[in-house]
Simulated scan of single mutants.
Amino acid sequence: MNVKFDPNNVVIKLCMSGMRLEDGGNTEDAIMMFHKAWQESTDDYERFIAAYHLARQQKSITDKLKWMETSLQCALNINDENVKSAYTTLYLNIAKCYEELCDSDNAKRNYELSNSYKGAPSDEGPFYHGTKADLQVGDLLTAGGNSNYKPGLKMNHIYFSANINGAGLAAALANGDGRERVYIIEPTGEFENDPNVTDKKFPGNLTRSYRSQEPLRIIGEETEWAKLTTTERREWRENLAKNKGGIIN
C-alpha cells in the first residue's frame, strides 16, 4: 500500500478541524470531530490517524492505551515508508501508558521498540524542492536563504520533501513573483526530519518533510502536482499569518 499525506483527504480535514477546536479550548466538540474521523475512515491509513487523535483525548489510561495500540496496529498493517516515522512516537506513547499502569515489563519493551526506530530517516525519495526561483539542472540549493514564513529570518537549513504536493505548496507560498517551480533534487549530505512538522500535528513525519545543512543538487524539474486554487492559497496565507508558533531553525 503506497500512501501519501493529502491535506484534502476527508479524514485528515476532520482531524485538522478537531485540532482547531482543541486549540480553542472546545475539547468536547474536538472529540466528536475525531470520532467522526474514525467513523468515516475507509482504510488503515485513515484509521491510524483518527485513532491517534482519539487516543490523545482519552482521560482513562486504559482507553488511551487501547486507542494508541489501535493506531499502531493500523500503522503496522500499512508497512509503508510514509508511516514508519510515526512508529517511534506510537511506541513511546504506549510505553508511557504501561508505565502509568505500573506494567514495567510492557513499558520497557515499548520504550526499546521506540528507540529502535529513532535515527536518521531511511527515505530514499525521490525528493522535491518548491520555489519561485528560475534554476537549472546541476545548480545547488544552499542554506542561508530568507524564510518564506517569518520575515527577516535567515534559515540555517535547506528544506525539501518526498511529497510532491508538499513541495508544490512550498512553491505557492514562496517569496518572489516568478512562476511556481518544483525541482527534483538529491541531497549531497546528511539530512533529518523537519522538526517544524514532525510530531507537531500528526505522529511522526507523515508529510515526509526534511532539511539539511548540506546543499541540494537539482537533477530535474516536475510540472505535474496539485496546484492550489486562489481561495486555498489565501487560506494558507491567512493560517500562516495567525500561526504564533516559533520556527525551529
Score class of each variant (00 low, 15 high):
residue 211 R to I: 01
residue 140 L to M: 15
residue 190 E to L: 06
residue 123 D to G: 05
residue 119 G to E: 11
residue 201 K to D: 14
residue 142 T to I: 12
residue 129 H to Q: 07
residue 182 V to F: 08
residue 186 E to I: 05
residue 177 D to A: 15
residue 186 E to R: 10
residue 189 G to Q: 06
residue 158 I to A: 00
residue 168 G to A: 07
residue 204 G to Q: 12
residue 166 G to Y: 10
residue 210 Y to P: 03
residue 134 D to L: 11
residue 147 S to W: 00
residue 141 L to Y: 06
residue 144 G to P: 04
residue 147 S to I: 01
residue 208 R to M: 12
residue 137 V to H: 12
residue 203 P to W: 15
residue 141 L to H: 06
residue 211 R to C: 04
residue 184 I to N: 09
residue 200 K to H: 13
residue 167 A to F: 00
residue 197 V to K: 11
residue 200 K to L: 13
residue 196 N to D: 12
residue 135 L to T: 03
residue 140 L to V: 08
residue 118 K to D: 11
residue 133 A to T: 12
residue 162 A to E: 09
residue 141 L to I: 15
residue 121 P to Y: 04
residue 193 N to M: 12
residue 186 E to V: 06
residue 148 N to P: 06
residue 167 A to W: 00
residue 161 S to T: 14
residue 178 G to A: 11
residue 123 D to L: 04
residue 123 D to N: 12
residue 129 H to F: 08
residue 151 P to H: 03
residue 184 I to C: 09
residue 197 V to M: 13
residue 147 S to E: 01
residue 189 G to Y: 02
residue 170 A to V: 09
residue 185 I to F: 03
residue 204 G to C: 13
residue 147 S to L: 01
residue 131 T to Q: 01
residue 201 K to S: 14
residue 182 V to A: 08
residue 168 G to E: 06
residue 183 Y to S: 02
residue 183 Y to P: 02
residue 118 K to T: 14
residue 145 G to F: 05
residue 140 L to C: 11
residue 196 N to V: 07
residue 139 D to G: 05
residue 185 I to P: 02
residue 160 F to Y: 13
residue 176 G to M: 02
residue 183 Y to D: 02
residue 153 L to H: 07
residue 176 G to I: 00
residue 192 E to R: 15
residue 148 N to I: 02
residue 123 D to F: 05
residue 122 S to P: 01
residue 205 N to H: 07
residue 188 T to M: 12
residue 187 P to L: 01
residue 161 S to Y: 08
residue 197 V to E: 14
residue 130 G to V: 03
residue 124 E to V: 02
residue 154 K to L: 10
residue 156 N to W: 01
residue 189 G to A: 03
residue 188 T to G: 07
residue 185 I to N: 02
residue 195 P to Y: 09
residue 181 R to V: 09
residue 176 G to W: 04
residue 167 A to D: 00
residue 156 N to L: 03
